[in-house]
Design a protein around this nucleic acid. Sequence first.
DNA 1: CGATGGGTTGACTGCACTCAACCAAGGTGG
DNA 2: CCACCTTGGTTGAGTGCAGTCAACCCATCG
Lengths: 243, 243
Amino acid sequence: MDKAHEVLIRNLSEHTALGPEDVVEIRALTFIQRDFAPSEDFIRQGDVPNVAALVVSGMVARYHLLDSGRRQYLGFHIAGDLPDAQGLFIDQMDHGLSALGPATVAFIPHREMFAAFRRQPTFAFSVWRETLLDASIFREAITNNSARPMQVRMAHLFCELFYRARAAQLVRGNRFHLPISLAQLGETLGMAIATVNRTLAELRGSGTMDLREGELIVLKWRDLQRLGDFTPAYLHLKRQSLP
Amino acid sequence: MDKAHEVLIRNLSEHTALGPEDVVEIRALTFIQRDFAPSEDFIRQGDVPNVAALVVSGMVARYHLLDSGRRQYLGFHIAGDLPDAQGLFIDQMDHGLSALGPATVAFIPHREMFAAFRRQPTFAFSVWRETLLDASIFREAITNNSARPMQVRMAHLFCELFYRARAAQLVRGNRFHLPISLAQLGETLGMAIATVNRTLAELRGSGTMDLREGELIVLKWRDLQRLGDFTPAYLHLKRQSLP
DNA sequence: CGATGGGTTGACTGCACTCAACCAAGGTGG
DNA sequence: CCACCTTGGTTGAGTGCAGTCAACCCATCG
């Protein structure tokens, strides 16, 4: 059976009430599925996009490359996300996408998406909504990296990822798969790798969480949330109530 | 004559080839126009949006407020922008909007927008595209505030604002109206006010630009661009025909 | 095996934050 | 009218946090 379509339907349904006609449109989309190795790029800055990517499993990252050679991660995506819906209406990608750990990604021709949008405006609106959620997460990242001290900043990132993973039912118990290195954390949060390590040690010391073997373990969600100044309103997840 | 409609049409036309039917739809929209004083809020974090804002003249800012009381500016908008198109499909605003200097804003009921979207998908796509440009600017802000040193960071912001203002024909000669205070610059770039002042002094010293009496003056565009590591690709300012 | 990548830790340094004082301009009220 | 206050900008001194640099460990892998 086709996991890609189901993952997309599940994710869109999380935020939007899809009608049966919308589901029919989605199931009719052509998906070309591919597996990627950790850190493998699949869309590069400068590419002319004509397909949209859907994360089927694993995680993918979006990033900027600066002339200085520095890399800045912009955000992360989990199963069900459309990480480059952002590319639907632009001529040229302004950022790249790569697998974080091993990941499976499905590609949908833009042409088909547009046709479906015209037939089913509700489907278009639901994807549009996804892109707006993305933007909301970007805004929070601006604030996080600009206005919050190191420890809070890192805790906030973990909170967000955990919260989103839970909404996507990717959390088993109190842990989920987060195959990120310290260097990548640094390039996400705008801090040097040594600082990443020390800050992470502090967070571990607080007993609220741990990060081991590519797994994030949340031990005291409430405390971690407080530590990270985390309020999930900006994620606009309909299911608001969580333990 | 109605400036609001014309400003919107001009801005959308900048990026999208609008058909005559789209223009008819836009002209049929109901606008409620209002003037705001500098720093006056007109949409607050937590509001339930049911109208979309359009900047008719002046500048408006988007910002987060943290529990700590700190304010983080997320971005700025000029005439023709739809600063809260982001609110079209969300239940609750995750950020606020305020006038930067004195500003005139027009409000359009969401209901009318949605109806127009269904009748004219191309119009919907053009507004969608605007929201994606917004997101692209947010991404750049993440990178700017996280990965670039202070001086470069500030120069980059000025480059972006100048470039966008020029595209919107708001630059007269080599200057345009940018009514921003040092404190606000600090809350945009994530730096303390003292540092803002010193960094700005450096930039002035470089002879590439000046900021006086609420006006940004660009003296050496090329040098400022280089100083700010600025490449305008991410602004996607190019007319593109839509599907 | 040696090479590589990821993680850990210590020492040093310097940049940007904090704090504080001060100035200029504009608005307000007695 | 002046006195006062507020807001925005400017500058100096001191400090501390996080960046840089370097060494080292460990596991994996060719």
